[in-house]
Write a protein that binds this DNA or RNA. Structure first.
Lengths: 332, 332
DNA sequence: TTGAAAGCGCTAACAT
DNA sequence: ATGTTAGCGCTTTCAA
């Protein structure tokens, strides 16, 4: 293996000099030596060992990203945003899937700390509303994304206002004349799910209308659940004119139910999602949904984290990331 | 910062002993000391520095995963497969998005080598049919996934037979009576795209039927292109009874075109995709497609790589990963 | 502008 | 079963 020592000897200089060349320490090296060293580095195919340099600089230029599941369509965009900002800034990202399990999450957090990552971005599992003391007190900066964690600095959290998004949507629906809206929520113990439902309620309240009876069903953020629950509901009642869903996956389950029962989306029953994952624009009819700016969330989370690593300070953003109602054809 | 030294002093033992405890060297430590050391480690909240141990063991327990783009729905499952096998085996994965750009890919490869990853899994950019000499000769084992790279050992490539998959599908379509099938291919310079088209041709040939004129259109693996090209084709001719698409994204573009023109999928024109990404089962009508076992591909790639890292040998699999025709409602 | 040398935190070989 | 010590490849004072 070719090391800095090897290069130094061949170039007839010290390792310190080679190090300065590699790291572009300006003004510390004469053009002559720089060129000569560079030349030899090239000839020898020398690749600096960043593990060794991490030993002394105490930074790995690596961050950890813990998400529930990269195959959940909400997360790829987010991950991409993180990786983009990271790589633009010469950081590398380690991907971890926690499956929403606290123990997996803990294991990853420990692993990441052992690997001396410079920081961690976490879309915390639904069971986590708090971070363990060790992590909180550790040297590793942490940024929470999508889900709020109580102990963390507000500026260390990248979230969008879920309540506001659904409020917007339901207000729109009420204005359009929908009255019997059924809300298919994600796990209601989750902050995001709770907030989305609050938005639902507030829209009714501000419109001075009473929600219909049993308008809330809480389950999980999956197509399967959306399918099952909507199927079940429609077997029992016929008064519903719209489903607002905790996320797009659930909405797609409703699509399946309607399709199966020969009902037309929009024409017979309207459907509204949340997230605006890729699919929503591609199904027919296009799904009216509330767009979560997931790429930006990831990008901003990385920006926040790396800024913190560099400066010790969190960025204070003036513009919050906002959810946005995207009207397509699943409502009329 | 609490180090192994610190623990050793507190426990009144040597660092070697603490090291043996941490790494569970069996038979090298008495129960008494083990317990005492473990106790102190806990009390002090000691986290072993794996960067330091990597220095001496010459392995980082980290692999790199280079894919074109995690937001492309084909890759999350694959990435998940990689990460699952890796984490089960105590490896960590660094995620890199190359955007199909050779230069980004090169940069990542260099970065990964500098970070001393133990191996690399790469879904190579379309421009790459070969690996640079440095990489090939480097100490870093490399496994190619989805796309074949000439110089690599056959056992270091995790691919499925694309030709076979499409052959199956088109044979099925011809049997069903479809005759004027139009193939909307991905970038034809890509091996995968080429193979899929070959399967198309062979199906016709073995059926003793002549493909219709101008049945091939090559573009890119995107919904937008699928939309545009199908729209354009249908403006010019009315004889087409089926589109076979290079991937599901293209197929979804065709869905959009048909929808826009008031044409019914299946009833008026059949559509067949490739990959079986998540969406395909969720759109209405469900998309008939050729399933790429992407999770397994990722899982197997990681298995192959890590086995190579550990034993120096590639695994020889007896069962190839196969594409499988999934018949849904977009064909009749 | 360059070099000598200490030391980052750990493991492994060897000695006891 | 445990300790001593060299050394992994690099950066960073400090001195020249």
């Amino acid at each position: 293996m070719v090391t800095i020592n090897h290069i130094a000897k061949l170039a007839g200089v010290s390792t310190a000099t080679v190090s300065n060349v590699i790291n572009n320490k300006l003004g510390k090296i004469s053009d002559g030596t720089r060129d000569r060293v560079l030349q030899i580095i090239k000839e020898e195919g020398y690749i600096p060992n960043r593990v060794a340099s991490s030993m002394v600089t105490k930074q790995t230029k690596t961050i950890g990203l813990i998400i529930p599941d990269i195959s959940n369509p909400f997360f790829p965009d987010l991950a991409r945003g993180v990786e983009d900002f990271a790589s633009e800034n010469d950081y590398t990202v380690i991907l971890c899937n926690s499956d929403n399990k606290l123990d997996k999450e803990e294991t990853y957090i420990e692993m990441l700390q052992e690997k001396m990552v410079d920081g961690i971005i976490i879309a915390a599992s639904r069971s986590r509303t708090t971070v363990s003391g060790e992590l909180l007190n550790s040297r590793v900066p942490i940024v929470s994304i999508d889900r709020k964690i109580a102990e963390l600095d507000d500026d260390a959290q990248v979230i969008v206002d879920n309540e506001e998004g659904v409020f917007q949507a339901v207000t729109y629906l009420l204005k359009k004349g929908y009255r019997n809206i059924c809300h298919l929520s994600g796990p209601i113990e989750l902050k995001t799910a709770k907030d989305r439902y609050s938005g639902f309620l507030r829209a009714y309240k501000e419109a001075g209308i009473e929600p219909m009876a049993s308008h809330l069903h809480a389950g999980s953020y999956t197509t399967d659940w959306g399918y099952e629950i909507s199927s079940q509901i429609l077997s029992n009642r016929t008064d519903i004119d719209c489903f607002t869903c905790g996320n797009d996956l659930i909405a797609l389950g409703v699509y399946r139910t309607l399709h199966e029962r020969g009902l037309k989306v929009a024409e017979d029953i309207a459907v509204v999602g949340y997230d605006d994952i890729y699919v929503s624009n591609v199904v027919s009819p296009g799904l009216t949904t509330i767009r979560q700016p997931s790429y930006q969330m990831g990008y901003r989370a990385a920006e926040t984290l790396i800024n913190k690593i560099r400066t010790g300070q969190f960025i204070k953003y003036t513009l919050p990331l906002r959810a946005e109602l995207i009207i397509r054809e699943s409502t009329k």
